[in-house]
Design a binder for these strands. Sequence first.
DNA 1: AATTTGCGTAACCCATAAGTTACCTATATG
DNA 2: CATATAGGTAACTTATGGGTTACGCAAATT
Lengths: 108, 108
Amino acid sequence: MTAPRLDAFQVIADPSRRQMLMLLSKESLTINGLAENFDMSRPAVSKHIKVLYGAGFISITGIGRERHCVLKQEGFNKLQDFINYFDKFWAGKLQKLETLLNTKAKSK
Amino acid sequence: MTAPRLDAFQVIADPSRRQMLMLLSKESLTINGLAENFDMSRPAVSKHIKVLYGAGFISITGIGRERHCVLKQEGFNKLQDFINYFDKFWAGKLQKLETLLNTKAKSK
DNA sequence: AATTTGCGTAACCCATAAGTTACCTATATG
DNA sequence: CATATAGGTAACTTATGGGTTACGCAAATT
């Protein structure tokens, strides 16, 4: 089960991985700690974690035989940029609509 | 080539579809107009468009035999909610860090 | 020292997204 | 009317992501 190398968008395309990020936003968790929350084998969780790690969504600290996962901002950057772009697009749309409405109001 | 039903996250997981959304943020385009920008067959583009439409990212207006694609905000909502959640998470982190620093400063 | 626990990795299976080509229909155009 | 153009759909192939089980190993625990 070698983990594939996915980009930020592909990473969050999986519901389980999104759920993992949500859980980690509440508390730091180990692999097994995470696995308890899912209806899948631990190796499957392990693979997801590897993917999340590989895309910079989490950092992992080994404490003894445990591996503690913590959210990392880096992975979210590309996503933020993307929706930020479209946020601005929609804001611009609204702006134009308002201008249009104002023009119409004046011409009345 | 029946288009699969994908959710918002899966929709933007595909680079071509993200590119299509970018193009449509510049101007309304027809299917062929879009296809010109990609190194893939028109049916492939057609399928992507169907996916984008199915997830509420675009609306389509048929004019004669042409189909004009326009961005639609609805599809972006889930994505915005998601990154919004984590934006707040990181803001909270920063907040806590500042508070901590302030506390330390005072205790000096 | 023996066993249990936490986790990684390898080998494998299956579903499906994403592309293709081939073909069809409907609207425009000469 | 004939033909070119815009685009949908079907059938098919292929790559790969996501799951599994089996196994190995190092750190705790007894």
